[in-house]
Simulated scan of single mutants.
Amino acid sequence: MSTANIGFEETLWKSADKLRGSMDSAEFYGLFNRKLRGVYSCVIENELYDLIISL
Rank of each mutant, 00 (worst) to 15 (best):
I44P: 02
G21S: 08
G7T: 07
D17K: 09
A26H: 13
A26K: 15
C42F: 09
F32I: 10
I44L: 07
N5M: 09
S25K: 05
A26W: 10
Y49N: 06
R37D: 06
Y29C: 01
F28V: 02
T11V: 08
M1E: 12
L51S: 10
S22V: 05
L31M: 01
I6K: 14
M1T: 08
L51D: 07
N5P: 03
D17N: 10
N33C: 10
W13V: 11
I53C: 00
C42I: 12
F32K: 15
M23E: 14
M23T: 11
L19M: 03
D50I: 03
S15T: 03
M23L: 11
S15W: 01
G30K: 02
L36C: 08
L48M: 05
A16W: 07
G21I: 09
S41P: 04
F32L: 15
F28I: 00
I44H: 03
F32N: 08
F32G: 07
N46K: 10
E27S: 01
G38N: 03
E47K: 13
I53P: 00
M1S: 11
A16G: 08
E9F: 10
A26N: 15
G30F: 02
I6P: 04
L55K: 15
Y29V: 00
L51F: 07
S54N: 04
S2N: 04
E47M: 13
Y29N: 02
S15P: 03
G38P: 03
L31A: 01
S15N: 07
G7F: 09
A4G: 09
G7C: 06
M1D: 11
K35E: 12
A16I: 12
K18F: 15
R34Q: 04
L48D: 06
F28G: 03
D50N: 05
S22G: 08
L31V: 00
G38E: 00
V39D: 04
I53R: 04
L36I: 12
G7H: 09
N5T: 10
Y29H: 02
I52C: 07
E45V: 04
N5Y: 14
D17L: 14
A4R: 11
F32H: 10
A4D: 08
Y40P: 00
A16Y: 02
S54H: 00
S25W: 12
A16H: 04
N5H: 11
